[in-house]
Design a binder for these strands. Sequence first.
DNA 1: CAGTATCCCTTTTGATACTG
DNA 2: CAGTATCAAAAGGGATACTG
Lengths: 141, 141
Amino acid sequence: MQLIAHLEKKMPQEAHSKTLTEKIRLGELFTVDCPSRDVLKHVTSLWGVLCLISLRDGTLRFSELRRKASGVSEKMLAQTLKRLEEDGFVRRFSHQVVPPYVEYSLTLLGREVSDQIAMLSDWIELNLWRVMESRREKGVV
Amino acid sequence: MQLIAHLEKKMPQEAHSKTLTEKIRLGELFTVDCPSRDVLKHVTSLWGVLCLISLRDGTLRFSELRRKASGVSEKMLAQTLKRLEEDGFVRRFSHQVVPPYVEYSLTLLGREVSDQIAMLSDWIELNLWRVMESRREKGVV
DNA sequence: CAGTATCCCTTTTGATACTG
DNA sequence: CAGTATCAAAAGGGATACTG
């Protein structure tokens, strides 16, 4: 489970009572430093999910994505797309014209994660009533 | 896509220039208010993933979970477990003894969602090298 | 159009101390 | 042991203005 290893990055290290190596020695941390967690964050973040799913239907321009992922700010959309592009999930193609014309589409890798994301979100939507039922039982608003 | 609708909750409403209804009228927001997004957040959050996956092997006590999900603070673990319990993913059983003895396990619903989470995280770990390769190409640290 | 830069507020998270 | 309460730090996210 490499994923767990990335916790290392999430741990405040200076202010901690035990040192990092001590924690590793104690078996409290896995030793492989691994960015799985970042990838998970990128693809399961609010706008990450929306971008990946919106792009499943085909290529979209920046402004088209903005409209599809209703409510996203330019800043967040740009940031999200940059991350997804760095991770190799999204392909960015800029036609070198004025005014700018930039297209975004899923790569093969992006298509694959978006399959996973779609499966998870589909499961959630399909089973949401069971969750809501549980919440009602427990008196959660 | 009900999931998208929940963006409504994510939008700061007081400080916004447009009112919420205006945004809806403009088609900038979907109208169905739906908590799918919360569920997604709960199950894909840092400690959410770790709890769900740790509990796949069987019942665990609070302190055992703390050790398994290395680095989690008591506060975060308690909060995560409470959410997962409310959502019906986790079952909490408190033996009424002193000192306290509380066990956590997955419900059927929790087992199902943890299958999805495991598939996603497995995909990520398996394909992480492809992501890293993409990052190296683009000069990302 | 497709962004970037800045400022500022909100939410999340962690460390610490305390309780039944 | 299994939490809760409190405070402080950090991250997330939006509005606005600006650029090529």
